[in-house]
Design a protein around this nucleic acid. Structure first.
Length: 274
DNA sequence: AACAATGTTCAGTC
DNA sequence: GGACTGAACATTGT
């Protein structure tokens, strides 16, 4: 689930944990916490607290403060392919992720998921906790994450930046949209959605797009982000439900086509995105 | 059993 | 060196 809208949702959940004293850290998953050996993250965070939660594209990071009030290390969190964030307190609970907008987060946090899928956890002095739940284990937690390599956030990129950054190169435009160094936040589903909305073939070489097409893509991106954030995730996109065999275009009824583009399974309208 | 999965990274090629 | 491609990563669900 995690593309920009889901990660923004998760960031807002992480904010619920800001200011609370950390009394225990579980960083024993060596794959999720690589390259840190078990105990390294715990050693620097225990006794301190999170002071802010930020996001750029799909990457989150927290500023921290040590037990003595000095500036602490930055804690980076990436949800990978399917991570979720849980934050609980003695009286409430918050969960991020697809399908969790309507349910009772306290029950979900307590009972519905297998505890062994919790890959990282902060326990707070008030009895609550923040945990990263990720059955696939492709999520990541690390100190001092590198965020400078990311392009501008997909929600903040300007029309000018979008034209010059996306509209170049010989790679398919979808590959360009997925490149987090070009712009940060677009994943496989969102890429298919905006290309479909803008009626542009995912396979078109990015550098061959006209300014008009690039602007259409940018507008489709802005609209898709607003919609996905409002509706709870990129899976609510109009064309996403048509990513299955024998599906037809929700707009014109023509068959949807499927192929690997930019290394990922891609669906597009055979008629309108030819 | 084989394959795909809303992501990133690294090795290899042009 | 830069641009680009495909495999690998760990695990689950179909």
């Amino acid at each position: 689930m995690p593309e920009l809208p889901e990660v923004e949702n998760a960031r807002q959940v992480v904010e619920k944990a800001v200011g609370r004293r950390i009394v225990e850290v579980d960083d024993t998953d060596t794959f999720v916490c690589r390259p840190h050996p078990p105990g390294e993250i715990a050693a620097v965070l225990t006794g301190g607290r999170l002071t802010a939660a930020h996001r750029r594209g799909k990457s989150m990071w927290c500023e921290t403060e040590t037990a003595s009030g000095a500036e602490g290390p930055t804690l980076g969190i990436h949800l990978g392919m399917g991570g979720r964030i849980y934050v609980t307190s003695p009286t409430s609970a918050e969960v991020s992720g697809e399908g969790y907008s309507g349910g009772d987060p306290f029950l979900l946090a307590g009972t519905s998921d297998k505890p062994q899928w919790t890959r990282f956890r902060l326990r707070f002095a008030d009895g609550g906790e923040l945990s990263l739940f990720d059955k696939r284990r492709l999520g990541r937690v690390r100190l001092e994450p590198e965020i400078d390599a990311l392009g501008p956030d997909a929600e903040l990129i300007t029309r000018e930046e979008f034209r010059t950054r996306v509209g170049r190169g010989t790679a398919p435009v979808k590959a360009r949209l997925l490149d987090q160094a070009v712009l940060a936040g677009i994943g496989n589903l969102l890429a298919d959605e905006v290309l479909w909305q803008a009626k542009i073939s995912p396979r078109r070489p990015a550098g061959e797009l006209s300014l008009g097409e690039l602007d259409r893509l940018k507008d489709a991106l802005a609209a898709a982000l607003v919609s996905a954030i409002a509706q709870g995730g990129v899976h609510t996109g109009e064309v996403i439900s048509s990513r299955k065999r024998d599906a037809t275009c929700p707009r014109c009824g023509a068959p949807m086509e499927r192929a690997t583009v930019g290394g990922r399974t891609t669906w597009w309208c055979s008629q309108e995105q030819g």
